[in-house]
Design a protein around this nucleic acid. Structure first.
Lengths: 354, 354
DNA sequence: TTGAAAGCGGTACCAG
DNA sequence: CTGGTACCGCTTTCAA
């Protein structure tokens, strides 16, 4: 139930439009100076006589003047704005990177505009166009999806860009990526050592393509060590998705002793499904995550996972952008990060009885 | 360790700047038409002869033309952009509302720009100025903090605005709020009925002010029922914050039988602290959350909490904005939502032994 | 130190 | 249907 009460009659809009269009010119007129002077006060305050400045400032105050940013960047030609595109801000993995970029950008006097794609390629394209249209000074794409000839569009725009996870280096495009294979290998190595031979792999739709590195790393392990068996399942990159995927996996008839999840979020979802079925972790089943989110310490049992340094990634991406945007010509490059294994409570020796 | 490899020498930037400034005019010239015609093709495609349009479209394609959105909104005067400001996007509570607004906005042809304040009033002010500067067509503020005379600035801007949680209705400002008191009362009522008399209350810094409704509701309960005792603690609105607050609470010497948390995130943090100390939930201690995040079902034990309909709130906020932005003059109003109690596994009878 | 004026890249109205 | 053109609000020479 909700209560709705009107506070103002619908037609009480008289004095609102007063301030609808306060332009530089009006401020100038009120202060008895030219628009150029007002502009100077707003920017290089030095070049204006103090008394004049005070007068202008007062006019700005009285008129509640807010400069039109569109006009500003149109006239100025420069941007001081970075665009950040992420696949799924709901997953703290992306949020942590986003937040670091934003924070660094602010420190350098940049504004940030964000776009979320929900892993949808059309949305990615849309967002890229939007960012180009806004003439951002740099573009960071933390996405797992890709769209045909997107790279060419970006290259054509000439905007300094940095991709995480996907894409290839180009003239104006730098790439940051994590060596997921190494991470997966470390997990399998550990589990194998603990006696596990039958693995379940839980991905999410965007990562399911056989081209994906994490997926491939798992499948390659099977090829390498014949005694290993793997069955995979995938659903959305959410808690629910992980739960559903686990359910599908367990319904397949295959009986893994360990479930390797593509990330911590889906792992927490899987934990829930196991708990509901009375399958104990790690006694009956081992579960691993990936990312080392804060949540992986707070869930129960705490997740064995692989640490991906999200802050470091954010710093690298932002720095790459700003250094190029500020005309310090740097080479486009590729940066690869090695992840580290983190042992917690969700894994243990294989339960041979099962 | 990370490997860094350069793919391109630093000075290979020759053909990049080719496309740096493709304007309407260049497209027009290439297509052999006027800028007005190109503009028409981009907007009211109907009014242009098909052959002409094809020619223009081809020129756009060849030049990789992307309209400058700043110029567009400057000339057009209108915005088709909504601003959304939130306190802490890291908390899914805010994200869920944000996502709903964004989705609804897109359906109505609006773009969305987001700003995160981290509960900092200065950041709130900064963000509001930014949104006004961008001349957004509507502004949604999902924030718990407030800054002096902020409401006046917004009212002065004339931008259709909707606040969640804070603020008061004005000429152009609508308010949506949840009756937190009712939610807290339901929790206390349930716990009291289960025999609990000594409560701990965990807030977060932004909510700690005694003016805050949730805080007050708890304190009022104490006044109403003399046998109830409450001790409060607060930290950040994060998993860690909840954990720290729980630790502080338990270190105070006071021995509650139930801990009421301001929201689910801090509750999950508190659960972790209790687990580390070997305090069983709910046998030794009951814990409640607030918000009914997805996470509250997936944590262990699943949280007893209060449901806040975040999607509904998002819909309401967005609709309020768009209806006003599209010149359907609607009254500014206040909308109050009643939350519902959700019983799960983190609460039980008071443990009289403790 | 300050003002006048030429754009920045579009939109939209008015003629043709 | 299409072209010419007057702005939109601000920055930035160039002169004064």
């Amino acid at each position: 139930m909700s209560r709705i009460s009107s506070y103002y009659p619908a037609n009480r809009c008289n004095n609102v439009s007063v301030c609808v269009t306060v332009s530089l010119e009006k401020v100038a007129r009120r202060a008895g100076v030219s628009t150029a002077t007002v502009s100077r006060v707003l920017n290089n305050a030095e070049l204006v006589r103090k008394s004049t400045r005070t007068r202008v400032l007062r006019a700005i105050e009285e008129l509640k003047y807010h400069p039109n940013l569109h006009a500003r960047s149109l006239a100025g030609g420069k941007s001081k704005t970075l665009g950040v595109i992420v696949s799924n801000l709901e997953n703290p993995f992306f949020f942590d990177i986003y937040k670091t970029i934003e924070s660094d950008a602010h420190k350098s006097g940049y504004e940030v505009v964000m776009a979320n794609t929900d892993y949808r390629p059309e949305q990615l394209v849309r967002s890229i166009r939007l960012m180009i249209g806004r003439r951002v000074g740099g573009l960071a794409a933390v996405v797992s999806e890709m769209a045909p000839d997107l790279m060419r569009v970006i290259e054509g725009s000439g905007i300094p860009t940095v991709f995480y996870d996907v894409g290839t280096p180009r003239a104006n495009i730098t790439n940051v990526r994590v060596n997921y294979r190494r991470g997966i290998d470390k997990i399998i190595e550990y589990l194998y050592g603990a006696g596990h031979r039958r693995f379940g792999f839980i991905g999410h739709h965007a990562i399911l393509e056989p081209i994906n590195e994490r997926m491939k790393a798992v499948m390659d392990a099977v090829t390498r060590v014949p005694e290993i068996e793997v069955v995979t399942a995938a659903d959305a990159d959410t808690l629910d998705g992980g739960k559903q995927a686990a359910r599908a996996l367990l319904a397949s008839g295959f009986h893994p002793t360990a479930i390797i999840c593509v990330n911590d979020i889906t792992a927490v979802g899987a934990l829930r499904e196991l708990r509901e079925r009375g399958i104990r972790v790690p006694q009956d089943m081992s579960v691993t995550g990936f990312d080392n989110l804060k949540l992986s310490e707070f869930c129960y049992p705490a997740l064995t996972t692989v640490h991906i340094p999200r802050e470091r990634i954010g710093h690298l991406m932002c720095e790459s952008l700003i250094s190029r945007a500020d005309k310090t010509p740097a080479a486009a490059q590729e940066i690869v990060i090695d992840p580290e294994f983190v042992l917690r409570d969700s894994t243990g020796p294989a339960n041979r009885a099962s």
